[in-house]
């Protein structure tokens, strides 16, 4: 049986909780600003406007 008491959880969330959220934030920023992703993002945001005009190829 896992033995997690209240103090352990509090200590975990007060220390590592901060770091994993910061780390996650950095991953998202890197993904959003990764240079080679720019093309697919631009395509995604414009392709919904000419929706269904022509089949994808």
């Amino acid at each position: 049986m896992m033995d997690f008491d209240h103090d352990t959880l509090v200590a975990l969330s007060k220390s590592w909780g901060l770091f994993y959220l910061m780390g996650f934030f950095l991953c998202v920023v890197v993904y959003a600003f990764w240079p080679s992703n720019r093309k697919r993002f631009n395509r995604a945001k414009t392709s919904i406007l000419d929706r269904d005009d022509k089949p994808w190829r």
Binding site: L21, F25, V28, V29, Y31, F41, K45, L49, R51
Partner: peptide, 26 residues
């Protein structure tokens, strides 16, 4: 989806939409 389609303009910043998605989720 419906706002860009109705306005016939792409979303202002696609990157910002990704950042705010993960921000809201977490």
């Amino acid at each position: 989806y419906y706002l860009p389609v109705r306005a016939q303009r792409p979303i202002f910043s696609y990157r910002l939409s990704i950042l705010s998605f993960w921000g809201i989720t977490f």
